[in-house]
């Protein structure tokens, strides 16, 4: 599934133009991104939550050359699926077996 499939879905559900459906789907992801950029947490019930974690700078090593380098402190994104989604995915597996 790609963004285009979501656009088609919204186009059918809301009865807007394709262009508007495309804009709105992109906007939803943009909203999530903007919120995460500000360091916020985004929680979507029934789906999961996105959180931003801070990683300290640390000394790393290039495994190929063995040269020690400093890995700068950075922010990483983590996604935690909700219980509902976890169960949906796990049960889906059972049905196909």
């Amino acid at each position: 599934m790609t963004k285009a499939d979501l656009v088609d879905l919204i186009y059918e559900r809301v009865g807007s133009s394709k262009k508007e459906a495309c804009e709105v789907v992109e906007e939803v992801f943009k909203i999530i991104e903007d919120s995460l950029r500000q360091g916020g947490k985004v929680k979507i019930s029934g789906f999961g939550s996105f959180t931003v974690n801070h990683k300290h700078a640390r000394r790393g090593r290039n495994p190929q050359t063995g040269i020690t380098i400093i890995i700068d402190s950075r922010r990483v994104l983590s996604f935690k699926p909700s219980q509902v989604l976890k169960h949906l995915v796990a049960d889906g597996a059972k049905r196909t077996v």
């Binding site: 599934m1 790609t2 963004k3 499939d5 979501l6 879905l9 919204i10 559900r13 789907v25 939803v28 992801f29 979507i44 029934g46 789906f47 509902v84 989604l85 949906l88 995915v89 049960d91 889906g92 597996a93 196909t96």
Partner: peptide, 18 residues
């Protein structure tokens, strides 16, 4: 609708690329 659809795709073992 967006998140229900995405959850449904994952439930069926699918992949989503945005």
């Amino acid at each position: 609708a967006m998140f229900e659809e995405m959850a449904s795709v994952l439930a069926h073992g699918g992949r989503i690329e945005i």
